[in-house]
Design a protein around this nucleic acid. Sequence first.
DNA 1: CTTTTGACAGCGT
DNA 2: CACGCTGCCAAAA
Length: 129
Amino acid sequence: MTQAPRRTSLTFPEAVHELAQLIPAGAVLSYGDVAELLGSGSARQSGKAMGAAPDGTPWWRILRADGTITEALATQANLHWEAEGLSKSGRRISMNDKRWNPTPAQWELIDGLRVALGNPKMSEVDDQL
DNA sequence: CTTTTGACAGCGT
DNA sequence: CACGCTGCCAAAA
C-alpha cells in the first residue's frame, strides 16, 4: 500500500497506549512521566487515556507519582506487580527505584511517538529525564 | 459560554 | 506517612 503500515499521526490517547506497550515488565512510569515522554499532554490526560486503554494494555505499569494506583485497580495491580517482581515498600511502589530507564533504542521508539504527535524529538529539546 | 469531571501532581499540615 | 486542598488541562454536559 501507498500508505504507511502505521499511521504517521496519532491522537494523544493512542500514543499513551503505544507507550504503555513499550514499558518492560518490572518497570513503571507515572502518569506525569508519560505526558513528559510524549512531549505533550498532562498527567490527567494520561490518566484519561488509560481509562480507555484497549485489552492487552499493561495499565498496571503506569501509576501515580507517589507509587500508588486508584483504589478500584489496587487489587488487580498487586497481582501483576507481584508476578513481575515489582517490590513494594508497604502499599506503594518505589518509583525512585522502579521507574523505567529507557535504552537508547527505546528512546528512538519514544521519539517516533513524539513525532507522530507532532512534537519535537527528545534530542531537539534536550529534555531527557 | 460556564460547570463538571477525571486511572493526576505538588505542597502544606 | 496519611490527608486535604489547590492547581492543571482537555473533553463533555
